[in-house]
Design a protein around this nucleic acid. Structure first.
Lengths: 219, 219
DNA sequence: ATGTTCTATGAAAACTTGTTCACTGTCAAG
DNA sequence: CTTGACAGTGAACAAGTTTTCATAGAACAT
């Protein structure tokens, strides 16, 4: 594989970033503007070079139409490590709220108040655009370990009407707890996902704060 | 959301499929040929309708340039429960960047509806206050399942110099991949956490985008 | 009946974009 | 010194592409 020049690499990266951000390719004149070329032909030459070197495929006659050919990497000599950020394809995101910690077990009053740290949390795919009420909670306790939600994890709660089987953040005895919602006819139960815990917690007065849609874990 | 006609839906699907297959959008004439219209204006009208109904965004004057507006899907079951938000202890959070899910440098259009959807991502506790370079990546593939990072998960990447054993986002062949970093003297390897994959991937040119600090999973 | 909306045709205008041509300068190898 | 590869300017052309204009039938409500 022939090596790319610095400018060719920059142009290729720009094109990738552009397509990642906008979902469509830049035109030759877009690239020209970005790199302050005085002529479209400068870009044209670079694109030809990129194609000749096999990393870019142009679609003849079509506008803003390219394909990326994955680069093959060599495998000898010593390793040179470069560090770089996500690039221009990064997109700014809306922010969400973090409501402190939640008890996934019996109410834990020993905790020295909610930490209420700042934290960023993800929205579920179905409501990425508009979920102004979404919030995050740190999990305390082990009542949901069978659902792979453990102490220290962060769950993302989103508003909505929970279905049977959803894991919900419910308000019980003034405490927010994380349990699976079980509907049996008109009756509603909360179920802990831990064999050591009582199976069902019957409720007649129940306040649902939202549905746990995602869980965030430290690696 | 106004409802789409059958033809509008078909055209929208075709456009999505085209972009998923070719990585660039179809021209109006491509669509015309596909649907055997006698006039480009038939397509033009449908595209106008799609934009008016809010599911497609056209870039005026630009060729093969569109954006998909993710459709919001309503979910209405019935339950007789009270719902309320997180309460006053909620705190507004800073926002982070989301770099999209990247396959060969491209976003993954095959996803249910998402084309570069917005998403919120959490920061690690160690860098909540100031991590302007942090970003998130959707995981594609199963090379890290032994580290409990699966296809569809979202990892939060933070900048920094990785230590031996860290899981890093590395740029290989123009793709961002998630692997465990192994240092052996001056040599550096990337290790997939999957028994079915080759153990070590030798590299000589390696670009590290950051260290995976957290993983986010859908429930 | 009448108007409106949706869908479509056919042609042309207007703009975007890729491509070509002629020419210049730089730099290293032969 | 010459040659050739590489990178760039400036202008123009040809094709691709979107967009507008004029027109018309079908479905449908008023």
């Amino acid at each position: 594989m022939e090596e790319l020049t610095k400018k060719q690499r920059a142009i290729l990266d720009y094109m990738k970033a552009h397509v990642a951000e906008h979902t469509y390719w830049p035109s030759i004149r877009d690239i020209q503007a970005k790199f302050r070329f005085a002529s479209t032909n400068a870009v044209f030459g670079h694109l030809q070079a990129l194609e000749r070197k096999g990393v870019l495929q142009r679609i003849p006659g079509a506008a803003r139409a390219y394909k990326i050919v994955p680069e093959v990497l060599g495998d000898t000599s010593e390793t040179v490590i470069r560090y770089e950020g996500p690039g221009d394809d990064a997109i700014q995101f809306e922010s969400v709220k973090f409501a402190g910690s939640i008890a996934a077990g019996f109410p834990d009053y020993t905790e020295s108040s909610g930490v209420l740290d700042s934290m960023q949390v993800p929205l579920s795919p179905s409501s990425r655009r508009r979920a102004p009420e979404s919030f995050a909670l740190r999990v305390r306790g082990d009542s949901m370990i069978d659902a792979d939600i453990n102490d220290g994890d962060t769950v993302i709660i989103e508003p909505g009407v929970p279905k049977h089987g959803d894991i919900v953040a419910a308000l019980i005895d003034g405490e927010t707890t994380l349990k699976r919602l079980i509907k049996q006819g008109a009756k509603v139960y909360l179920k802990a996902e831990n064999q050591n815990y009582p199976d069902l917690i019957p409720t007649n007065s129940l306040t649902i704060q939202g549905i746990a849609k995602s869980v965030m874990k430290r690696i």
